[in-house]
Computed example of a mutant assay.
Amino acid sequence: MTYPRVEINLSLIKKNAMNIVELCYKYGIEVMGITKGVCALEPVVQTMIEGGVKKLGDSRIKNIVKLKSFGVNLPVYLIRIPMPSEINDVVNFADGSFNSEFEVIKLISQKAVENGKVHKIILMVDVGDLREGVMPEDVKDLVGKILELPGIEFEGIGTNVGCYGGVLPSIENTSILVEIAEELEKFYGIRVKTISGGNTATLKMVEEGVLPRRINQLRIGEAILLGTDSTNFRKIPNTYQNTVILKAQVIEVKTKPSKPIGEIGRDAFGNIPVFEDKGPMKRAIVALGKQDCRIEGLIPDEDHINILGASSDHLILDVTNSLKEIRVGSIIDFKMNYGTMLGLITSPYVEKIVV
């Protein structure tokens, strides 16, 4: 076998998808399955679909091209604001996209007309997280301009919280979307078909029954893939968390001091490390490093193993109290958070296995 490797449990991911789709369906909410966390890996995408997901979204146009290449016939959306340089692929491969800049939407309109297509637009509204989106007071005028463009279908509005500013979804900030949608409908005499109210972090409001009634779409990746909600630091009820497991191989085991010897400068990443002197400890190194993922998001499967730190290629562990015999060649399992999974799946040095 090849290491390091990520093993992805399709049956558990399917159960997660089914439970989340069922929860949202009770409240009239459509689940857009977000595939970027696994780089649109075909078996995982097909598992999401089998779990009941009716739309797909990804932040990378290359992943969307991949989705189309293996015959996905569900609507697929680009969820990151399109770059002007990728408009041709956006129009040709994505059924719709999330946008905030009129100049970009005009480019999409022009390319859609050239190619005889109609491209769906969801306009992002910034309700406080300060990532992408139009400020609420500017939405009405911008929608008026969008409605005049050929080759464009104004599908609705959306928002994002939690990913940049850490702002939690609330009744107040999600209600802003509903109020804007109703204002648009009254002013322009249109129907706002989609109100995309957030991501995995917003599921907590669904569970509590407090999400404003007209929010009818959530973009869900983490909850399906890992059964977790990083923003609210919790496990999603009725989901599994042992869906994606990292297996890394030990390449050195030695008893060494716990504090480096000599004058301390900066490490390879420009940081000044701080160490506590705990006396001699049994240390193991596994072949994995910061080049592969965010080490901070790794969780050893055994409670008695602790992560001491990492360089670009080496992950250093304290295995002094491990209940297992750790030796060169041993395999150590890790769970992970969403950010770490992104790195591992993206790394060309980590094998991906579906089970």
Rank of each mutant, 00 (worst) to 15 (best):
L142G: 04
I157C: 12
T159L: 00
A94C: 10
V161F: 08
G156K: 02
L142A: 02
S170G: 06
V134K: 02
I108A: 03
F154C: 02
V134M: 08
R131W: 13
I108H: 04
E101T: 03
A112E: 10
F98L: 15
F93E: 11
A112V: 03
Q110S: 12
G166V: 06
G116P: 01
N160A: 03
G96R: 02
P136T: 01
P150G: 03
N99Q: 12
L107T: 09
G128T: 04
D129L: 01
V167S: 04
L123Q: 12
V104S: 10
V161Q: 00
V139F: 09
S97G: 15
I146W: 03
K106E: 15
E137D: 14
K120Y: 15
V143I: 11
V118Q: 12
I105M: 04
F93Y: 15
F154P: 02
E153V: 00
V91T: 03
L149D: 10
D129W: 04
V161Y: 07
E101N: 06
G151H: 04
G116C: 03
L123R: 05
S109D: 11
P169Y: 01
L107K: 14
D95H: 14
E101Y: 09
E137M: 08
R131Y: 12
I121G: 08
N99E: 14
K111F: 07
K120H: 15
E114D: 15
G166Q: 05
I152V: 12
I108S: 05
G166W: 07
G162H: 10
L107H: 09
G96W: 13
E103Q: 14
M124P: 05
G133E: 06
S97A: 14
I122P: 10
G128P: 11
L107F: 09
V113R: 09
I157R: 12
T159H: 08
I121D: 09
K145Q: 14
D129C: 04
F154A: 04
G151V: 07
E148H: 10
G162T: 03
V167Y: 05
V125Y: 14
E153A: 05
L142N: 01
E155F: 15
A94Q: 06
K120E: 15
K140R: 12
I122A: 05
P150Y: 01
F102S: 02
H119R: 02
C163T: 08
K120Q: 15
L147Y: 13
G116A: 06
I146G: 00
S109Q: 10
L130W: 09
V125G: 13
E155M: 15
V127H: 07
V125P: 07
M135E: 10
F154Q: 04
K111A: 11
G158Y: 06
T159Y: 07
R131Q: 08
G96S: 05
F93T: 12
F98Y: 14
V118G: 02
N115E: 13
H119G: 11
V118H: 11
D126S: 04
I157Q: 13
S100R: 05
P150M: 00
Y164F: 15
C163D: 06
D95S: 09
S170Y: 11
P150R: 00
G162N: 07
V167E: 13
G166N: 06
Q110F: 09
L149E: 08
F102P: 02
S100M: 10
L142S: 02
K111P: 00
E132S: 08
I122Q: 03
